[in-house]
Design a protein around this nucleic acid. Structure first.
Lengths: 252, 252
DNA sequence: GCCAAAAGTTCCATAGAATGGAACTTTTGT
DNA sequence: ACAAAAGTTCCATTCTATGGAACTTTTGGC
């Protein structure tokens, strides 16, 4: 009873009309523009970014502002408002599993692991970093909670792709192992390993990941941490009410 | 026209018509209901909570779901979706902190303070000068925006260390006071005082600091400026959406 | 396992809300 | 000081969001 359908932004072809409310779609376009923007935006910025008339943006913003989702500064620019924080806090409160994942991540890091994080699928070709605890080693990579990352980079991306839709058959080995590790040679200088987490009905929920400088991801290091990260992922799965399956289940 | 008013306790009253977009207002009412709810909500729950017809809620949710702001579980209940988490992360990321802090720093300096600056934690054992406004007095010290500084020097470093990880228990007094001032005798010839700034959830965000020649940091001068810098820090905290806590906080 | 009640979903004519764009005011930049 | 860009107001027209009926599915009592 925990399967999630959060809707996917992309719809292959002709995604526009999906029976929602158009005015709301437009307001959320404005929110998206503000979310993506590098900083406070002018009315004209938003008009250009969304393709809506300035007058329309102004009207939509009026409603968003009343709810605190948009803030306007004294210089006239717009940005996300404190209301989105309240929302974020509510999200945390409503998803208490995050607390448990935090405990698991902290445990790994305090045992001396590389930086630990949890990533969930986001749409069909990306993932989102839901939580992250920096390692006690150096911490200079730029990944933070909320970051959207591609699936074609790193073991974590690979693991999520292996359980994605449509399934990448080339990744069947990864899917069976429920684990992936960077082979090491990557010009980025970073490496990672990840173990799969499942919810009820065996539904894939995300990846528990350790990441750090590639130079530290030796075969020995990977062998040492693999059982621990797999075990940690298993604990999260159990906490989520998921079943541990050594074999893959065909359908939910 | 007839609202299904089943007695909605929240929303108080004056949600007067402020010239926004009604459909958006309604969608945000649904968001508010989800935010306030103790757990996943049924369609009927939301219909009752918002006073909207079920069919209307369904349509609004369709749009909210497409944006990821609302998720639907396999048991049919609705809750906030991962999109709000992204939003929260975006808010944190593009915090307009600098714009507002610049105003505050300028105000302090134009009131005759020593050079004013804002420092944020950088890693676990250093801080970064995020902004700086030179005083109208003399003295050019060499600290500039972007400089990385240690935590073992000055009141500002001490304050940031007091809220750092791991916590330095010897600095509990500083943490409680949310304020620190150089005691004066320092062979460097420089002194400073600093007040803590917090963001949402009481998270420590950095220190507002005044710094200058030690010779000018007399007890009387510190007493004179302490309330002003504390008040300025408080204003920044409020602007950041943080809460002012007069009582001591056990965690930060 | 059956039935009644509640919840969820689909559909449509119509009211009225949202729209585009023109006109106007304010701010910015040179 | 001036021109150009940004921001704001306003309104007739259009098209969308709406209420509510009808229908399907799920829940729960017995």
């Amino acid at each position: 009873m925990d399967k999630i359908d959060a809707g996917s932004p992309e719809k292959s072809s002709g995604d526009s009309d999906k029976g929602g409310v158009k005015a709301v779609d437009r307001a959320l376009m404005v929110m998206g523009a503000l979310e993506r923007a590098p900083g406070p935006q002018t009315l004209t910025d938003l008009s250009v970014a969304t393709g809506l008339y300035k007058s329309a943006v102004l009207r939509l913003i009026e409603s968003l502002k009343n709810a605190g989702y948009v803030a306007r500064f004294s210089n006239g620019k717009y940005s996300l408002g404190p209301g989105v924080f309240r929302l974020g806090a509510a999200y945390e409160r409503l998803n208490p599993i995050r607390e448990y994942i935090g405990v698991v991540l902290n445990n790994l890091v305090s045992e001396g692991s590389e930086s630990a994080s949890f990533h969930a699928p986001e749409g069909t070709d990306s993932r989102i970093c839901m939580m992250r605890v920096d390692s006690h080693h150096s911490t200079l990579d730029r990944i933070a909670e909320g970051d959207i990352l591609p699936l074609d980079r790193g073991a974590t991306g690979q693991l999520i792709a292996a359980f994605g839709t449509p399934k990448d058959e080339r990744l069947e080995e990864v899917r069976i192992a429920q684990f992936a590790a960077s082979v090491g040679i990557d010009d980025s200088g970073w490496a990672d390993m990840a173990a799969a987490v499942f919810g009820p009905n065996g539904k894939f929920r995300g990846a528990l990941s350790l990441s750090g400088p590639a130079v530290r991801f030796t075969d020995a290091m990977i062998d040492r941490w693999r059982p621990r990260i797999i075990n940690a992922a298993r604990n999260i799965t159990l906490e989520l009410g998921g079943q541990i399956s050594s074999t893959r289940r065909p359908k939910a």
